[in-house]
Design a protein around this nucleic acid. Structure first.
Length: 489
RNA sequence: GGCCCGUUCGUCUAGCGGUUUGGACACCGCCCUCUCAAGGCGGAGAUCACGGGUUCGAAUCCCGUACGGGCUACCA
C-alpha cells in the first residue's frame, strides 16, 4: 500500500478550464500531494479542429491561479514527456507494433458504410450491435500483407473474451463489473493512422506510469474498453476512481446555460482562488460531518478517495458566494488592502503609480467594506463615493431621505459642526453628528440618513462616520452644502 | 433497446445494523446597530425515491420498480 502514486489531469484544450474539470484537477492534485506522489498535467489535444493554443494557455493560467502546481507537464517538463498528445505519436506507433507482435490487434478492412449498414439493421431490431469481427478471421499473414500493401484499414483490438468478465475495484464506488460480451473489437487506430481516444489515453497513462485514474463518472462506462486495451498491451491496470458529475440547478450537466462555468470567469468576478478551491473540494467530498472551511494544507492532509461521494452534485452559486465572503473577511485589513488595489485600479479609481502612497488610507478602508462584500468586484461600486470629487445623488434616496422633515436642518447643522471640528476623526465626527439631535430635536437616525445620502449619494453605504473621516473635511462639507434644500436651485 | 452508475431537508453533505437523521448554504424570527452588512441566538425544513425481503432491529445489507445520468462513434 506504500505504492508510489502518480496521477494525471488531462484536459482537452477545446475550451477553457471549467468548474467540473477544475474539481477533477483538485482531487487528483490533492491525492498526489497527500501521498507524496506526482501530479502530472497532460494536454489531450488530439482534436485538432477544436484545440487551440489560447485554450491551453488559459488552462495553465487557471490551474496556477487555483494553486494547482504540477510536477510534470507543460512548461515544467519531466521524464515521461512530451506532455501534449499530439507530440506522442511515436508511443502510439510503438504500442501498435506491440499489439501486432502479440496478436492482440488486427487490421480491419470493412468500410465504414458496410459497418453502418449492419449497425442500422441491428438497431431496427433494437439489439446491441458491436463490430461482428468479420476481419478477425482473416488469416494473420494475409491480413498483415494486405495492410502492408496499402489497402485502407483500421486496427481493432482483439478483445480477449477468454479473460472473462471485467471487474474493477473502483476506489470510490467499490466493485463494478461488466460482462465481456458487451464489448466489441473497437477501433484503436483510424484509417489515417491516428489513435482513437480509447487507445491514446491508455497508452499515455501506461507510458507515464499513472497509478490512479481519478475522473468523472462519465468515463465509468469507458473503463471496460480501456481495460481491454491494457490487457492487450499486457500492461498493469491502474486503480480507477469515478466521481459523480456536477450538475446545474435543473439537474442537467453544467453548461453555459447555468451561468459562469469557467474558472477564469470566477476570477474575473472577484472570487478568491482559496474560496473556489474550498468550495469545489467540498462538492463531492467531505472531511467529517461538520467541517466546511479549510485551507489547502488541510485539504492535502485530509484528502481521501474513500470519502468522495459517488452521486452527482448540484452547483450552488449562493454557497460559493457566501464562502467567498468568509475568505475575504479572513484576509484581514492588511490582506484586503493589498488585494483590492488591482480592482480599484481596474475601476479607474486608483492610479497604479500612486497605489503605494495610499496604502495607509486603504488600510483604514478595508474594515469598512470587508464584511459588506462577497466578491472583490463589489468593492469599487461601494467605495466610488470616496474617490470621486463629485457625486450624483440617487433620486430615490433623495426623495425618500432628504425630503423628510428635519433633513434639511440636519444638514445645515451638520455642516456647521463638522466645519468647527478640531480633529476630523471618526470618533469626533460621530460625537458631532450625534449632537444634531440635541440641537435640533431631529431624530438621530433621520439626521444620519440625511448626511449619508448627502455624502455618499445613496441610502446604503459603508459606516458613515468612518467614511466621512476617509473622505476628508473639504469634500464632505461641499457635499452636505450642495445637498441642502436651499442649494437645490 | 442493451450494459453500467446514482437516489438522505430546496442545495452541498454526515451517517456505513441500534443516534430524537448531525452540520453548512439559502429561508424565517429575535438580538446587536448610523444604513447595509457581518456577528450572536433561535426556528422551520428529510414519510432517508417506492415496494418487497434478511434481521430482535435497516437510511444503512439483498432483490425488484420508478426516476435521473452515463456509455453503446474511424468524438474526447
Amino acid at each position: 500500500m506504500t505504492e508510489h502514486v502518480r496521477v494525471r489531469f488531462a484536459p482537452s484544450p477545446t475550451g477553457n478550464l471549467h468548474i467540473g474539470g477544475a474539481r477533477t484537477a483538485i482531487y487528483n492534485w490533492a491525492f498526489a500531494r497527500h501521498h507524496g506522489g506526482e501530479f502530472i498535467l497532460r494536454i489531450d489535444d488530439t482534436d485538432k479542429e477544436r484545440s487551440t493554443d489560447e485554450n491551453t494557455t488559459q488552462i495553465l493560467r487557471a490551474m496556477r491561479w487555483l494553486g494547482l502546481d504540477w510536477d510534470e507537464g507543460p512548461e515544467v517538463g519531466g521524464d515521461a514527456g512530451p506532455y501534449y498528445q499530439t507530440q506522442r505519436g511515436k508511443f502510439y506507433a510503438e504500442a501498435l507494433e506491440t499489439l501486432k507482435a502479440n496478436g492482440h490487434a488486427y487490421p480491419c478492412f470493412c468500410t465504414p458504410e458496410a459497418i453502418e449498414a449492419k449497425r442500422e439493421a441491428a438497431r431496427s431490431e433494437s439489439n446491441f450491435w458491436g463490430y461482428d469481427r468479420t476481419c478477425r478471421s482473416i488469416p494473420r499473414d494475409e491480413a498483415l500483407a494486405r495492410a502492408k500493401a496499402g489497402e485502407p484499414h483500421v486496427w481493432r483490438v482483439k478483445v480477449q473474451d477468454e479473460l472473462g468478465d471485467i471487474t474493477i475495484n473502483d476506489a470510490i464506488r467499490g466493485e463494478v463489473s461488466w460482462p465481456v460480451n458487451v464489448m466489441d473489437d473497437f477501433i484503436l487506430v483510424r484509417t489515417d493512422g491516428s489513435p482513437t481516444y480509447m487507445f491514446a489515453t491508455v497508452v499515455d497513462d501506461w507510458k507515464m506510469g499513472i497509478t490512479h485514474i481519478i475522473r468523472g463518472d462519465d468515463h465509468l462506462s469507458n473503463t471496460p474498453r480501456q481495460i481491454a486495451v491494457y490487457q492487450a498491451l499486457e500492461a498493469e491496470i491502474p486503480t480507477f476512481a469515478h466521481m459523480g458529475l456536477i450538475f446545474g440547478a435543473d439537474g442537467k450537466r453544467l453548461s453555459k446555460r447555468h451561468g459562469a462555468t469557467s474558472v477564469e470567469s470566477y476570477a474575473e468576478e472577484g472570487y478568491l482562488s482559496e474560496a473556489l478551491l474550498n468550495y469545489l473540494s467540498l462538492l463531492g467530498w467531505s472531511i467529517d460531518e461538520t467541517t466546511t472551511l479549510f485551507d489547502r494544507e488541510r485539504l492535502i492532509a485530509e484528502f481521501d478517495l474513500a470519502r468522495v461521494s459517488n452521486n452527482p452534485s448540484v452547483w450552488d452559486p449562493e454557497k460559493l458566494e457566501w464562502m467567498n465572503g468568509v475568505y475575504i473577511r479572513e484576509l484581514g485589513d492588511e490582506g484586503l488592502a493589498q488585494r483590492m488595489v488591482p480592482w480599484l485600479i481596474e475601476a479607474g479609481l486608483l492610479d497604479a503609480e500612486r497605489a503605494a502612497d495610499r496604502h495607509e488610507w486603504l488600510l483604514e478602508l478595508a474594515p469598512l467594506i470587508s464584511e459588506r462584500v462577497k466578491t472583490m468586484s463589489e468593492i469599487a461600486p461601494m467605495v466610488t463615493f470616496l474617490f470621486a470629487d463629485e457625486i450624483v445623488i440617487d433620486e430615490a434616496s433623495r426623495e425618500k431621505v432628504l425630503a423628510k422633515e428635519g433633513a434639511g436642518r440636519s444638514l445645515d447643522v451638520a455642516a456647521q459642526l463638522l466645519e468647527a471640528l478640531d480633529e476630523f476623526s471618526a470618533e469626533a465626527i460621530e460625537a458631532a453628528l450625534r449632537s444634531i439631535h440635541e440641537i435640533t430635536g431631529v431624530k438621530a437616525k433621520i439626521a444620519f440618513q440625511a448626511v449619508r445620502v448627502a455624502v455618499t449619494g445613496t441610502a446604503v453605504s459603508p459606516p458613515l462616520f468612518e467614511s466621512i473621516a476617509l473622505l476628508g473635511r473639504e469634500r464632505t462639507l461641499a457635499r452636505i452644502i450642495a445637498a441642502r434644500p436651499s442649494s437645490a436651485l
